Amino acid sequence: MLNRFFGQKPQEDPKQKKTNEDVQEQVAEQQPDIEQRFSFLSRTRQMFNRLGNTVQENDIITDSLWDELEESLLGADVGPSTTLWLIDRLRERASDENMRTGRQVQQALREELTQLLGKPAALRFSKQSPLTVILVIGVNGSGKTTSIAKMAARLKHEGHDVMLAAGDTFRAAAIDQLQEWGNRVDVPVISQKPNSDPGAVVFDALQAAQSRGSDVLIVDTAGRLHTKFNLMEELKKINKIIQRFVPDGPHELLMVIDATTGQNALLQARKFAEDIGLTGVIITKLDGTSKGGFAFAVADDLGVPIKFIGTGEKVENLMPFEPQNFVAALFAQQ
């Protein structure tokens, strides 16, 4: 069973704490590059510009400012629980650090949001076996299959020998879609007929990957809702099959979450996390929402790192998640 990470608020590390001047100087240097690379966040940036306008530089900190800030965070889909925690944390800092202006509050908010997202988290590869197994879950319509193909293309570009397993056998369309994407990115796909045993597909894929010398196997799984008991049992069975071939696998258990569904998606993700554990998430369709603050709710609620973000329909539109640059992009002036 994979490890779970729940309820852990980020801890401050005094050794890593930067002064406001250091942070502002670094962001200023990176600003043109950040704006270009994160241009897909233009709709979300509008919402965060509203948040920035809430705490103007010369504003004196008042109860009204805190109320407006809370409203802005909720409007950006940061989520009730995370928003309340952030406001409490900022109030605490305002008192301890003797903050007097909105500018100081805004800078503290950027620091807290960056820390909340944690450090960049790359994919984990096996240190014991020649084959790394990545299990991907997610409800239908979340962009799961497309994200798998994008990840496969990225790994292949990095020099890995990648194979895909079409473990979502309950929908013929899911098998066809993965095969089509496999052809497009030139990565082999192991599949069986619709309604086949997903465990059998994974078994065949593991055999094929080892015999062909592949070093990464990405497994697509059924996308039914978490309320279906059989899905959870199927995922646990797949996990056991993987461990027969690769004792330390699966090395990643990633959930794909659609940013446009917002807080509702967290209910599903939380259930998956509780039942089978997660090592990370992929957030898709950030280019299609004005509420990218959802990323903070995901990091806070699930307690696992965001590995990638989907930024469009093209195969190259999958970015490793960079917390500091993501926050800087959200607060960039348009």
Rank of each mutant, 00 (worst) to 15 (best):
M1E: 14
L2S: 14
F5I: 15
F6Q: 12
Q11T: 13
P14R: 12
Q16I: 11
Q24D: 14
E25K: 15
E29N: 11
Q30E: 15
E35Y: 07
Q36F: 10
R37S: 14
S39N: 14
S42M: 13
S42F: 13
Q46H: 15
F48V: 08
N49V: 01
R50P: 00
E57S: 13
N58C: 05
D59W: 03
I60F: 06
I61N: 08
L65G: 09
W66P: 04
S72V: 04
S72L: 04
D77S: 00
L84F: 11
W85A: 04
R89H: 00
E92F: 04
A94M: 09
D96W: 03
D96T: 08
D96M: 07
E97I: 05
M99F: 15
A108S: 14
R110T: 04
E112K: 03
Q115R: 13
L116K: 01
L116T: 08
G118V: 03
K119I: 05
P120W: 14
P120C: 11
A122W: 00
A122T: 05
K127V: 11
Q128G: 08
S129A: 10
P130H: 13
V133E: 08
I134E: 02
I134W: 09
I137M: 10
S142E: 03
K144P: 02
I148H: 09
K150G: 07
K150V: 07
K150F: 10
L155A: 10
E158H: 00
H160T: 06
A165I: 06
A166C: 01
F170I: 07
R171T: 00
D176I: 05
Q177M: 05
W181Q: 00
R184V: 01
V189L: 06
K193L: 03
P194F: 11
F203H: 15
A205V: 03
Q207W: 01
G213P: 01
T221R: 03
R224W: 09
R224I: 05
L225M: 14
H226V: 11
F229W: 08
L231S: 07
E233I: 01
E234L: 12
L235W: 01
L235C: 05
K236W: 06
K236I: 07
K237G: 06
N239F: 05
K240S: 13
I241R: 09
R244E: 13
F245N: 13
D248V: 01
D248S: 01
H251R: 07
L253H: 04
V256T: 12
V256G: 05
I257S: 12
Q263V: 08
N264F: 12
N264I: 08
K271R: 04
G280H: 00
G280E: 05
V281K: 02
G288P: 00
G288I: 02
F294D: 03
D300K: 15
D301Q: 11
L302N: 00
G303C: 00
V304M: 01
G310L: 13
T311Q: 02
N317E: 12
P320M: 06
P320E: 12
V327R: 04
A329C: 09
F331K: 07
F331H: 11
